[in-house]
Amino acid sequence: MNAVFEKPSLWQRLRPWFKSFDLPLLSALAWIMALGLLCMYSAGYDHGTRFVDHARNMLLSVGIIFVVAQIPPQRIMQLAIPLYTVGIMLLVATAVFGVTKKGATRWLSIGVTQIQPSEIMKIATPLMLAWWFQKREGLLRLPDFLAAFGLLVVPVGLIAKQPDLGTAILVLSAGLYVIFFAGLSWKLIIPAFVIGAASITALVMSEDKICQPDVQWPVLREYQKNRVCTLLDPTKDPLGKGFHIIQGEIAIGSGGIPGKGFMKGTQTHLEFIPERTTDFIFAAFGEEFGLVGALALLGGFTALILRGLMIASEAPTLFSRLIAGAVTLSFFTYVFVNMGMVSGILPVVGVPLPFISYGGTAMVTLGFGLGLLMSIAKTRRIRY
């Protein structure tokens, strides 16, 4: 008797690659990406090839998510030390041989192109810290946390020296999230919050004195001091340093509750909003889609973050829990810092809005992070 075998269809062969993907996480991402494409078309249709490039970068990010999701977390953990080491070496090389643009040495020429090594550390640093705590699981003592802080300070210091305050904040926050989830005592966390709150209060109350031109701030550079002082009172230089913040607030406020409508933003299309397709794209979004649109966008980010935290809480290993928690809260940092600086509650720094702002490098990094989340989610499902 001859057995008859049917050749499997293309979908039957591809289905195992997709069936374990986390649908709630994918749904939240798809919603954010759809709003990002809508906003980019309006804000960048007359800005060269921004919309087409943005769509291409999204496809690249989706491809990275798919590839990384196929790699088990155990294999990813093996990349922690090599990736961190290479990242540090590239940062040192950037400090010595880097390309300087607009007063910042952030790029390294590798012949055919230029790369920004600090982007690597957004992933390499939390991976390294998660690996460190995984190896010390059950044996954690204060020296282990001090060593973790040392691993974090090195890349943050090198990035801040470039200077690149925005990326330094993102790397620092990602590392601190890993350390927090690893079990850092609240006895150390609460005093840090108290000191930070007291410092911000003192800064606000003494703005008139410390923001004088002849007053120099320790640690921070002159342009960083100007950004903080501009945040405290942007009306002192409305056509100069305060222009970004003032125009962003005007655009968001003029959108009202329903918004002015798709492609009807006057602040946006009359080019009053600076960097309307990158750092300040939320101002363009708020003007055209109003409070309703902003809440819809925030709903997508909230769903993504909550789902990521759920994946982290159910992850099978300490490494998976730490990296999933850090990646998820890094998205929160991106969103909070970007929307905060555009709406005038935080200083202006170069932090994009995930999958909304134009930028290929950031899209690759975000895609890698979401790929890690997908990989951990798949491992969790296989376990149960």
Score class of each variant (00 low, 15 high):
26 L>I: 05
257 I>L: 14
242 G>F: 08
345 I>A: 07
224 Q>T: 05
86 V>R: 12
83 L>C: 06
198 A>V: 10
191 P>S: 03
63 G>D: 07
21 F>L: 12
73 P>Y: 04
90 L>M: 10
172 L>T: 09
108 L>Y: 08
253 G>P: 14
222 E>R: 12
152 L>Y: 10
4 V>N: 13
332 F>K: 05
186 W>F: 10
42 S>A: 09
283 A>S: 01
48 G>F: 01
186 W>I: 07
340 G>D: 02
305 I>N: 06
217 W>H: 12
15 R>F: 08
121 M>P: 07
230 T>V: 00
166 G>V: 03
117 P>F: 02
5 F>S: 13
43 A>D: 00
122 K>T: 11
11 W>A: 09
271 E>H: 15
144 D>S: 04
350 G>K: 01
155 P>Y: 05
25 L>V: 01
323 I>V: 10
299 G>N: 14
24 P>K: 05
85 T>E: 04
172 L>H: 10
227 R>M: 07
66 F>V: 03
91 L>D: 07
141 R>P: 15
31 W>F: 15
151 L>C: 02
4 V>G: 12
79 L>F: 00
274 P>K: 06
160 A>H: 12
94 T>W: 02
322 L>F: 00
143 P>R: 07
187 K>A: 12
264 K>D: 10
14 L>S: 14
208 D>G: 13
125 T>P: 11
272 F>W: 11
331 F>K: 12
380 R>T: 14
247 Q>T: 02
88 I>N: 03
16 P>I: 02
31 W>S: 14
271 E>G: 15
381 R>K: 08
56 R>I: 13
261 G>W: 01
221 R>F: 03
128 M>S: 07
131 W>V: 10
286 G>I: 08
224 Q>W: 01
347 P>I: 11
225 K>W: 02
81 I>D: 15
367 G>D: 08
27 S>L: 03
142 L>S: 15
247 Q>K: 05
285 F>M: 07
162 Q>I: 09
275 E>Y: 08
75 R>I: 07
344 G>R: 04
44 G>D: 02
269 H>K: 01
90 L>Y: 04
234 P>S: 06
168 A>W: 03
221 R>Y: 11
49 T>S: 14
276 R>D: 02
143 P>F: 06
34 A>H: 06
